[in-house]
Simulated assay, not measured.
Amino acid sequence: MESQDSALHVVVGIDGSTSSHAALRWAVSHAKLIGADVVAVAAWDLPGAHGWSAPAVDADFDEEIAEQGLVDEVRTVLGESGAAHVRKRLVRGDTVEVLLSEAEGAAALVLGNRGLGGFRRTLLGSVSQQCALHATCPVVIVRPTVEVEA
């Protein structure tokens, strides 16, 4: 999708969850305070591409549809005018690896506390935990009940 440059920016992980929507709103609000751009990042990969199982091909995945879905999701959360100021990136790869890479040099990495996958009993999702442990920038983990004005 759109390329990332060296300008001050805040990276936010988007996955369709309520938590990631709260994170997007928080990232936009924070970016306004510090004069930064917002980069919304969604990661995708083929099932079985990481791990011991043989890679499977997802015949139903369409990257163009996924890119449009990301654009639509950001527009739904922020409205047309808010979405126009957010760079959108759909990147193939392991979610943690993609987010850590995209956040290199960022002012912050903002994530929801729990995404669409994982176990409900965990306080933080494994993606947010791994990013908090390994990111080279500050990491903010937002709960979906946090409401901020964008």
Rank of each mutant, 00 (worst) to 15 (best):
I65Y: 03
A106S: 11
G82Q: 10
R87K: 15
G112W: 10
N113G: 14
V98I: 12
D58Y: 00
I14G: 07
A40F: 02
A23C: 10
L124F: 07
P55L: 15
D37Q: 13
E64K: 15
V38T: 06
R89F: 01
E73G: 06
T18W: 06
G79N: 08
E64H: 13
A54P: 05
H21N: 13
E102Y: 02
H21I: 00
E80M: 10
I141Y: 04
D60T: 14
V139D: 02
A103R: 09
E67N: 01
L46S: 09
S128N: 08
H134T: 03
I34K: 11
Q130N: 10
W44L: 12
A49S: 15
D58M: 05
E80G: 07
D45Y: 05
L33A: 04
L123W: 00
D72A: 12
D15M: 09
V110M: 07
R87C: 03
V77P: 02
E80I: 12
G13F: 08
H30P: 01
L116I: 10
A54I: 15
G51N: 12
E73T: 09
A27V: 09
R92M: 06
P47L: 12
S53W: 14
W26Q: 12
R114N: 08
T145S: 13
G13V: 14
V127R: 02
N113R: 15
L24T: 14
S53H: 11
W26N: 03
A84E: 14
D94I: 02
T76S: 11
L124I: 11
A83G: 09
D37H: 10
V142E: 04
S17R: 03
T122E: 00
S53Q: 08
I14N: 04
W44M: 10
Q130F: 00
S53M: 13
I65K: 15
N113F: 00
V91R: 15
T136W: 00
L24W: 07
S53Y: 07
V57R: 08
R114L: 14
L111F: 02
D62K: 12
I34L: 07
I65G: 07
S101Y: 02
V98K: 13
A42Y: 13
V98C: 12
D15L: 11
V39K: 14
E63N: 05
L78S: 01
P47N: 14
A83M: 06
L33G: 04
G93C: 11
T145A: 08
A43T: 13
G79H: 08
G16W: 15
R114G: 07
K88R: 15
A108Y: 01
V74N: 11
F61A: 10
V127Q: 01
L109M: 08
G69K: 11
K32V: 04
R75D: 01
V110I: 13
H21V: 05
A135I: 01
E67C: 03
P55V: 15
C131S: 07
C137I: 03
E67Y: 01
G93W: 11
I34H: 07
